[in-house]
Design a protein around this nucleic acid. Structure first.
Lengths: 117, 117
DNA sequence: GGTAACAAGTAGCAATTTGATACTTAATAA
DNA sequence: TTATTAAGTATCAAATTGCTACTTGTTACC
């Protein structure tokens, strides 16, 4: 039996690599959702995010935010308030993800019935 | 200090719920990438997927494919060949994700330099 | 004729991620 | 006086993912 190796067109490979690169920034269970909240709501504080993103543990949220900041998708700003409050906000780079978020949101709305089966 | 609860516009909430629902089908480290391969390449066998999706372990691939099948995004077809071969293919429902995949692919290509910093 | 390779996974154990709960500090509201 | 709030961290448990080996039956290779 001949081992027929699959041939993939270069432009497909480029797209697939694009998807892989994108996912490397969005991996983990919560990042996409966190970004969605920041995108639709705007600047948010840690506790607001924790309340809005249902189900995240503080530890996980904290870690995901650090990852996102490292990848320059969000900024972290500590306010001179008492007690300290911290704002998280999408960078321009982070905002450039809007098309992905919108597309996902629209798909989820459109296929909600199908998903819930 | 007053606890000012964040108000979110209903249509934003709907979008966010859409994103959440979408992600519930695509969670896990590999699903989006697997779907991308099936989308760009078409029908693929288990071993082809394992070879193309760099880094997946058999066990993980197997589990992710089962999840995708359960959610009716892909079909699994066992061929009467010797040795047995199995084809995985996107359903129409699965193909409806194409806009998400395309958007992610395009974003990844466009921002590759930025991502790799 | 014997050995290796291939298909599509599974089994078992290790390593990594995620989750749940409690705790931290300083200030303010009840 | 006690509880609450902010933004996390600490600790341990549970779930996910990864690595290596193995399964079965049939061909390709030497």
């Amino acid at each position: 039996m001949k081992k027929e190796k699959i041939e993939i067109a270069p432009e497909c490979n480029e797209h697939i690599r694009g998807v892989r690169d994108t996912m490397s920034l969005l991996d983990g269970k919560w990042k996409t959702l966190i970004i969605s909240h920041l995108y639709y709501v705007g600047k948010m504080r840690f506790m607001d995010l924790k309340r809005q993103v249902e189900g995240v543990a503080s530890k996980t949220l904290s870690k995901e935010l650090k990852d996102l900041e490292l990848n320059r998708l969000i900024t972290r700003t500590q306010n001179n308030t008492m007690p300290v409050s911290v704002d998280y906000e999408l960078t321009e780079f982070g905002k450039s993800l809007h098309q992905i978020i919108d597309t996902m949101g629209a798909w989820g709305i459109r296929y909600r019935e199908e998903i819930l089966k």
